[in-house]
Design a protein around this nucleic acid. Structure first.
Lengths: 188, 188
DNA sequence: CGTTTGCTTGAATTCTGTCAAAGCAGGTGG
DNA sequence: CCACCTGCTTTGACAGAATTCAAGCAAACG
C-alpha cells in the first residue's frame, strides 16, 4: 500500500488507523468495477492499472468521462455518498489492482479520523477545480486543441487507452480523431 | 441573514458562532465582485440578486461558467483556497446583496466549527456532482437540448440573464441561440 | 433625443458527425 | 504456428451543425 503513503499526507500513526479499512482487489481487463444502475458500495484507490468511467446515452453511445491510473481515486460519488443508483459504469482497461474501502468503513473513518476527513476535503476540492477546468476547455477549445491538451497533460493515456475512448473523452467521434491525427502528422 | 438559516442545516447555537464571520455587501448591476487576475480574499453567499462567473479566452471572447442566484455560493475556489490568482471574473447581473466571508474567518471556522466544516464538505460534494452532470450534458446533448434543459432547470434565469450570456453558458454563439429560439417558436 | 447595447437574420464558411468500405491489428482455437 | 475472427483504426465522400460576418432593428439609457 505504498501509494496511499506516498502522498505523504498522513503520519505513521494515522496510517495505522486508516489502512486496515482497505482491502486489496484485482480486476481483469474489461472487467467492471461497478455497473450503471447498481448501488456503489465501495470506492477505489488505484494502485496499478487503468480504469475508465463511462455512460451510455439515450442513443446507446458510450461516453468516457474519466480515466484513472496509478494514484487516482475512482468511484461513483453520487451513488456511494447519496445511496442512489450509479449513473456511470467503471471498467478496467488493463489488469488493475486497487485498494477498496466500503461505505461503512468510509463513514467510520470520516467520523473518527480527522486527518482522513481533511484528506477527503482536499480530494474533493481538487476534483472540483479539475472538473471546472475541463468544462472551460470544452467551451474554449476546438476538438484539435483538446486533443493536444490531452497529449500534454496525460501522455501516458495515449498508449494505454484505445483511440475510441480517447475520442469520446474529448467529445468527438473516433473517425474525426483519426482525421485530426492524420492532419497533424502531415503538417509536422 | 435568513437564507443561511433557511438551509436549516445549523442549530441556533452553531449559527451564533458562524454568522458573526459574515459581512453584508452590495453590488450594483455590472459591478465586479472579483476580477480575473486578482487574489480572491472572500467568498459570497447570495442573498438577493444574480451573479455570473465568466472567463475571457485567448481570442477575447467571454464564456459564462456559472450563474448564482438567491441561496447560491459564489467564489473562486482556486484563488480563495490555494491563494493563486483568479482565472475567472465574477459580475453582478442585477443589483445584488451578498454575505461575504473573508479567508481568515473562513479558515478559522473550518478549524474550530465542526458543523461548518461538514456543511462545506456537503457543499463541495454537491458542486462536484452538479459539475459532473454538466460535463455529461455537454457530451450527450445537442445545443438545442442543452437549451431546453436550461429552460427546465433554471427557468428563472431566462428572464433575468441576457441571451448572450445564456448562449455562452450552454456553449454556443448568441446568433445560434437566436436560430434555436426562432425554430422552436415556429415548430410549436 | 442620440447613443449604446443587445437581439435577430441571412449567406458564406468552417467544423464535426455520419456512413460505408477497407485495412490492420490482436486474440483464439485448431 | 497458422488461419480465422473480431474489433479497432483509417479513409473519403457527404450531410448537418455551429460559427462568422455584416447588416438592420429594437430596446434601454443617459
Amino acid at each position: 500500500m505504498k501509494h496511499l503513503l506516498s502522498y505523504d499526507f498522513f503520519t505513521e500513526k494515522e496510517l495505522e488507523r486508516i489502512l486496515p479499512s482497505f482491502n486489496q482487489k484485482s480486476f481483469k481487463k474489461k472487467e467492471l468495477l461497478l455497473q450503471e444502475g447498481t448501488l456503489s458500495q465501495e470506492v477505489y484507490f488505484i494502485h496499478r492499472g487503468c480504469v475508465r468511467s463511462f455512460l451510455v446515452d439515450y442513443e446507446g453511445k458510450e461516453h468516457s468521462i474519466l480515466f484513472g491510473t496509478e494514484g487516482y481515486w475512482m468511484g461513483d460519488l453520487q451513488s456511494f455518498i447519496n445511496g442512489s443508483l450509479a449513473s456511470y459504469s467503471y471498467q478496467a482497461i488493463e489488469p488493475t489492482e486497487v485498494f477498496a474501502i466500503k461505505k461503512t468503513d468510509w463513514d467510520q473513518l470520516m467520523d473518527e479520523e480527522a486527518s482522513f476527513q481533511k484528506y477527503v476535503g482536499i480530494l474533493f476540492r481538487n476534483a472540483l477545480i479539475t472538473q471546472q477546468e475541463r468544462i472551460v476547455e470544452l467551451f474554449t477549445l476546438s476538438a484539435e486543441e483538446r486533443y493536444e491538451k490531452l497529449e500534454k497533460s496525460r501522455r501516458d493515456l495515449l498508449k494505454r487507452v484505445p483511440q475510441k475512448h480517447l475520442a469520446s473523452y474529448i467529445g468527438i467521434t473516433p473517425e474525426f480523431l483519426s482525421q485530426i491525427r492524420k492532419k497533424r502528422t502531415e503538417t509536422e
